[in-house]
Amino acid sequence: MLLYTSSWSLFRREVVRFLRQRSRLIGAFIQPVLFWAVLSSGMKASFKPAGYESVSALDYFMPGFMIMIVLFTAIFSTFSIIEDRKDGFLQGLLVSPAPRLSIVIGKLAAGSFLGVLQALVFFLISLPFTEQSMSFINFVFSIVILLWIGFTLTGLGFLFAWKMESTQGFHSVIMLVMLPMWFFSGAFFPVTGIPTWMQMCMKLNPLTYGMDMIRLTMAKELPKIEQIGTPAIFFAIFTLLIVFFSVKITKRN
């Protein structure tokens, strides 16, 4: 009961707060949309990656930029942890009986929900320009996968934010971690037809498996279990590790 009420409370608060701070909305949403529009239009003619010859740049970049929105929101929503510590809100939370797991769940779920909400808006806006042919069940499946990815990325932000004292410091550190993660995830180019060292980077990058999953679900047909099984297992391990360490750092005084 306590786990439920406190997670839910933190989730709601986080969402209300985010929606009241317009600048965050703009930062996390407009930027990726601009990147997507400019990059995919500019590369329309030259973009012919191995194995994706029949796919247009706009379509290829779609899932990647949806993940970018989720990623940016994850970063912006974990800013609140540093602010909460500075403003004193966190100290009140930490002397309450709220289970530490609920702090993690509340924050991560909120970051994920907000990110996916914006990714969906982006998806709807971009629909007329792409050749999307997802079935409804694939669409639902994609949302679930996106929520999962958002939860995990917010967790990564949470781990970094917990010990940080300034939002500026956090911003520069997290950008250094998350942007390379995104670049080497297959958002920009597929794993095939690139130098070996880059292939290695991509295979070691947990987000690559998230990207694999979202590409599989944002398709005409439902992915087969042998296609989605491996990335799902790798990504699930990553999620569990993140949650485990997040709870662990909140317990340390």
Binding site: V16, R17, R20, Q21, D84, G88, F89, L90, G92, L93
Partner: peptide, 13 residues
């Protein structure tokens, strides 16, 4: 119940 030196409140709410 703990009352802190800097109130543990969320200013935006």
């Amino acid at each position: 119940g703990v009352v802190f030196q800097s109130p543990a409140l969320d200013g935006h709410l």
